[in-house]
Every structure is written in structure tokens, then in C-alpha cells.
Simulated assay, not measured.
Amino acid sequence: MSYLNLKRAVLAGIAGILLSAGTAQALELRSADIHPDDYPTVLAVKKMGELIQERSGGRITVKVFSGGALGSENDSIEQVKLGALTMARVSSAAMHNICEVTRVPSLPFLFTSTEHLHKVLDSDIGDQMLRSCEQAGFVGLAWYDSGARSMYSRDKPIRNVSDAKGMKIRVQQSDLSVAMIEAIGANATPMPLGEVYTSLKTGLIDAAENNYPSYESGHHYEVAKYYSKTEHTMTPEMLLFSKRQWDKLPEADRKIIQDAARESVAYMRKLWAERENNSLQIVLKGGAEVVETDKASFQAVMKPVYDRFVTTDEMRDLVKRIQAVK
């Protein structure tokens, strides 16, 4: 954590202590998100806050720090673990090295559709994966959507695994993402999202992979017009609560918070579906070409990824149970 973000965390922690001391029963829950104020995840947490405030008679409120105001997702995770921050919405990919079970929903081609994803996350399987992070210092409140990630390229469409061979493809800074791209014979290039547009424009990379909203909002469609619907991952988002703070709450407050978090999921999914559709229309009008792909050719080379990252009996059991959900 940078000095600036550490200072922010300490000051925020002091502020929270003073708030509790000065107002007795009043409680402010502080939540971080790297996305802008109008993003579905941010709006969903604000909706959760409205429910909490109403059900607690105004005693419990939620303040959302959006747009990365409290640092990166990794910074937020560290602050939540320390108890200096109450909550954070992060990609489950950011938790892979902290809570290994979170690798499971990031596995390539594990989910066959958005409906399949929702059935899994809304079941005891989803609850089990959320609970797995408690030993690392986090209470998983809910799963949010992040859409399906697909590949988009500058110079030619990617229709099958052969088309991708040798390409330099930007991925998230995640070992699993790197391994997936290497499995298709391409060169994985991890880099922050903010560097993708320039890297595509200058030819530093040939392609990238993400969902429609990121493809659109980052203006990547202007420099990589071929959007190939590989839909290789549907890595969900997580809403995490500090276990240090959770353990200090009375059971009644925990129930209010947990119920509101779960109820915010449907609202988030509605907003996400609208956002995806709007982004798709924007990129199509902007000259992007959506390309159908031979998904089977990509799936056929993913066994080494599963062998490397599905490392425990619990994870293997989760994969089997997820694949059995219809």
C-alpha cells in the first residue's frame, strides 16, 4: 500500500472510531469501488445503503467512495482486511492469491451462460465460495455481475484458437489469466486497464479481452474493431466486508446488512444488463464488428489451466458441482 493510501486508511479508521464514540448507536459503513459513480456496482452498493438506513431507522448508513478514491482494488482489499475500511467491491480475480477458492469462478468456459452463472452464484455453491474467504479476514456478502469477457483485436478477427496463435494479448494482472492466454498459443501481456488503449493504438499489443462496457468506456473499439465472442470467462465481482468489523456487530445489525446486500444483487443485475446493451449499441454504431467464434476450439486446450489452478479437493468438487448445474 502506498504511503498516501495508508495515510487515508489510518485517518478513515480514526474517523470511524470518533463517529462511534460521539454518536453512540450511529454506525457509518464505508465502502470502496474503483469504478465511477454511475457504474452498476457503485449504484448497487448505494441501493444496499438505502435499504440498510431504512431498516435501521437511520442508525446505520453507507458511504461509498467510488472512482478509486481510496486506491486500487488491492489497496481496498488490504484496508478491509485491517479493518480500516468496512467494505469493498472487487473483482474476484483480485482475491485469487488471498482466497484460492475464488479461482474457481474465474476458470475459462466454466459457465455456459449468464443464466447458468446466476443459478450457481445464487445456490449453496455460491454461498460456500463466499464463506471460504472468512479465514483470510473477509466476510463475503454478495456476488455481482461482471459480464462475459471476450477477445478483441486490431488487425484481424479471432474466430478460433488458430487465429490467436502468436498474438500479443493484454490480460488482467492475474496468473490464471496469463495461463489461459498461453494455453491458446498467444503471448499474454499483463498490464493495467488504463494502458490498453494506447497499447492497442501503437501496436504494442495485438488484442485484449474484456466485457462490452469496458470495451466501450475505454474507447478500445476505436482501435480494435473486431470483437470476437469467445466469452471465455464470466469472473464475478465480490462485495467483501471486514471480518474484524463484522465480528464486533450485534447479530441484528449483521442480518440487516446481509439481507440488504443480497437484495441489491437483483438491482445490480438489472443495471448491468442495461449497461451491456447500451455499450453494445455504442460500439456497433462506432464501427465495431461482433464476430462469432468456434468456442470448442478454445475449450479443447484449457485442461492444463484447470490442472494448474484447481489444486484442492474442495476446488475440484466445486468445479464438478458447477458443471452439473443445469
Rank of each mutant, 00 (worst) to 15 (best):
143 W>T: 03
143 W>P: 06
144 Y>T: 12
144 Y>M: 15
145 D>R: 11
146 S>R: 11
146 S>L: 12
148 A>W: 05
152 Y>T: 11
152 Y>W: 12
154 R>Y: 04
155 D>F: 09
156 K>T: 15
158 I>V: 09
160 N>K: 10
163 D>I: 07
163 D>K: 07
164 A>S: 05
165 K>I: 12
166 G>M: 10
167 M>F: 01
168 K>W: 10
168 K>E: 12
169 I>C: 05
169 I>W: 01
171 V>G: 00
172 Q>V: 13
172 Q>K: 13
172 Q>C: 10
173 Q>Y: 09
174 S>R: 09
174 S>I: 08
174 S>G: 07
175 D>S: 15
175 D>Q: 15
176 L>P: 03
177 S>C: 13
177 S>L: 06
177 S>M: 11
178 V>G: 08
178 V>I: 13
179 A>P: 01
179 A>F: 06
181 I>Y: 03
181 I>S: 03
182 E>P: 00
182 E>Y: 00
183 A>I: 07
183 A>P: 06
184 I>E: 00
186 A>W: 03
186 A>G: 03
186 A>E: 03
186 A>V: 08
187 N>S: 08
187 N>F: 05
187 N>Q: 09
188 A>M: 07
188 A>Y: 05
189 T>H: 00
190 P>W: 14
190 P>G: 10
191 M>N: 01
191 M>T: 08
191 M>C: 10
192 P>R: 13
192 P>S: 12
193 L>M: 12
193 L>D: 11
193 L>R: 13
195 E>A: 15
195 E>W: 15
196 V>N: 11
196 V>T: 13
196 V>Q: 14
196 V>R: 06
196 V>K: 04
197 Y>M: 14
197 Y>G: 11
198 T>D: 15
199 S>E: 14
199 S>L: 12
200 L>N: 10
200 L>V: 10
201 K>P: 04
203 G>I: 06
203 G>Y: 14
204 L>I: 11
205 I>M: 04
205 I>T: 03
205 I>R: 06
206 D>P: 02
206 D>H: 05
207 A>V: 08
207 A>P: 02
208 A>I: 05
209 E>L: 11
209 E>Q: 09
210 N>A: 15
211 N>A: 14
211 N>D: 14
212 Y>A: 02
213 P>F: 02
213 P>V: 04
214 S>L: 10
214 S>H: 09
214 S>R: 10
214 S>E: 12
215 Y>L: 01
216 E>R: 03
216 E>D: 06
217 S>Y: 03
217 S>C: 04
217 S>F: 07
218 G>N: 14
219 H>V: 14
219 H>A: 15
219 H>K: 15
219 H>N: 15
221 Y>S: 02
222 E>I: 12
223 V>W: 03
224 A>C: 05
224 A>S: 05
224 A>T: 04
225 K>T: 05
225 K>P: 06
225 K>C: 00
226 Y>P: 04
226 Y>N: 01
226 Y>W: 10
227 Y>K: 00
227 Y>C: 02
228 S>D: 08
229 K>W: 06
229 K>F: 05
229 K>Q: 14
230 T>C: 07
230 T>R: 07
231 E>M: 09
233 T>H: 02
233 T>N: 04
233 T>I: 13
233 T>A: 07
233 T>V: 12
234 M>G: 00
234 M>K: 05
234 M>R: 07
234 M>L: 07
235 T>D: 06
235 T>Q: 02
235 T>A: 09
237 E>N: 10
238 M>N: 10
238 M>T: 07
239 L>C: 13
240 L>N: 02
240 L>C: 11
240 L>S: 06
